[in-house]
Amino acid sequence: MQYMCLIYSAEEAGPQPGTPEYGPFMQGYQAFTNEMQQSGKMVHGDALQPISTATTVTLENGKREVTDGPFAETKETLGGYYLLECETLDDAIEQAAKIPSAKHGRIEIRPVVVWDN
């Protein structure tokens, strides 16, 4: 099964760029990505630009409405994701708990829909 691990955290939480903690923090991400690739669980993963770069679009009566900012203002925002191939939810929980941001944020685990033809 494929599980989407959505990484949520407050942008000011955790190690910030330019601090001595940031290097080891990012190395943790590199190590996690390597581990997932080697174990064959890695499907895909990306980091997202900060929430200040977000744009939201919707259609109101057929008219495009574009707004600056995220869909909902929340303290914890989506900062990136891993799409993992895992046997069970327990396996997905175990992997997701190793994502470095789990220490100061949360990882939401969502199973991916498999479409029946």
Binding site: M1, Y3, C86, E87, T88, L89, D90, A92, I109, P111
Partner: peptide
């Protein structure tokens, strides 16, 4: 079913 909660006795560690 959808989230893949396993039907098994957890291992020693858990």
């Amino acid at each position: 079913t959808k989230a893949g909660i396993p039907f098994e006795v957890p291992d020693e560690q858990n």
